[in-house]
Design a protein around this nucleic acid. Structure first.
Lengths: 248, 248
DNA sequence: CAGTGGTCTAGACCACGAG
DNA sequence: TCGTGGTCTAGACCACTGT
């Protein structure tokens, strides 16, 4: 089963066009330089303008390009945004050129209980695999993570050795592909045991992140609660005025 | 053929359709109930399927509906997401049923200096209006905010009484409409003076948020640095796996 | 298998920006 | 004025879901 994402057809013209445009943006063009017009792109790629527009829409949403009616489409300044994209810790660290790892990994299968059950829409009696990991980058502790996965959708997970990317394991072994996550970020301070695990002073500031992950069919796949060192982490993203409501 | 319709504009068919769908979602339909099919909607509204799809795309992105190929489009569970939408403090508080206000408002016009200049892409000598406000909800301090706006795009701003929504003032008086913002969120703790302003214990956790806001033409409009009480704030949003890269 | 969403074509007119 | 992006029409075929 090759990958190719939901879009069964090995690529799709939009995806090829996207790849080409990304090459332009990262390579030949500098910020605020003009991309070819939509009509030019459509013709030279043998696709419709709609297809071109969909690719540009996505890039615009990701903050890579911006468009001005009547003028053209332009390369954005180097982006600060990284969030609003769903990545795993492993992917995230690799993208930053760091080597991801884990310390103190523990796995167990336990009843969900009230809180975890509620997060995963399970009965409190149903079982979940519980992973505890101290995630590291280049060997340095970055984050403490508790992950809960319904046992019924990933049988035997608690008996496996988890190393590296959990998402990769879920995809390859259980065909569970996370498409979407609801995330809630809080600011907190580290109590002494957590501070020690992360190797920072007691009562240092930190992010506490709660995440519920879903697959394409809105089935809950994972609940994770993580604590990140604030000295090494920030959340950077681009937000847009929502649509054309403009009511107020 | 060649219908023409002139297309009244003033909303566009997509916007009307969106309003109708929002009514369905918030009114008659419950979570996980099925919306009409795209083809039905297209016919009953006298638009193309593409137009229907664009409206549904947007709702899907906002987390209001989810779609499953071969099955249909369904109402999402009540959303937790609020972020990934650009709102002002004023709008945000009103949306939560609270009365927004400000304490200790100060306004001055000063040279941008190195840091603010860099954020706003101004020479350090150019002037900016600097607003300092303690934002309140139902009279309770929620956030401390420093806002910087280039004097050349909002002349005389520093001489005005700022009350209520700055964004509203910028739109109505200077025709500056924020469309996009880059935001960076950090976790921190409150030093004693800030803690006092916010009425919370010293060294309480807090969010520090830096924001650069742009208009539709990518002109920088505002740089803001805010500190929010962590006991009253969290960032909740939905994130999606980005497109079809899937390189993994 | 029928029906759904996902992608695409080949046009058209409109609103805006710049020369 | 002319070229740009923004919106829309009227179809088509494909991939996936459910029965």
């Amino acid at each position: 089963m090759a990958q190719t994402t939901g879009n069964g057809r090995a690529g799709g013209k939009g995806a090829q066009l996207r790849a080409y445009l990304l090459g332009l943006i990262d390579g030949e063009l500098k910020p605020h330089e003009k991309l070819p017009t939509e009509r030019e792109l459509a013709e030279s790629f043998g696709v419709t303008r709609l297809t071109v527009r969909r690719a540009l829409d996505q890039l615009g949403y990701e903050g890579r390009v911006y468009r001005t009616q009547g003028a053209g489409t332009f390369v954005s300044e180097p982006r600060i945004a990284k969030s609003v994209e769903l990545t795993s810790f492993t992917q995230d660290m690799r993208a930053r050129g760091l080597v991801p790892g884990s310390l103190e990994t523990q796995v167990e299968e336990i009843p969900a209980g009230a809180e975890i059950g509620a997060r995963l829409a399970l009965s409190p009696r149903e079982h979940v695999a519980h992973l505890f990991r101290v995630r590291t980058a280049d060997g340095e502790p970055m984050c403490i993570e508790h992950t809960y996965i319904p046992a019924k959708i990933a049988p035997g997970l608690a008996a496996r050795a988890i190393e590296g990317s959990l998402y990769q394991l879920l995809t390859e072994t259980y065909h569970l592909k996370v498409e979407k996550a609801e995330q809630s970020i809080h600011a907190t301070v580290l109590d002494p045991p957590l501070a020690k695990l992360l190797g920072v002073p007691e009562f240092s500031p930190a992010f506490k992140v709660q995440r519920v992950a879903y697959d394409a069919r809105n089935q809950r796949i994972e609940y994770a609660e993580s604590v990140y060192r604030a000295d090494r982490y920030s959340y950077d993203f681009i937000i847009y005025r929502t649509t054309r409501d403009t009511a107020n």
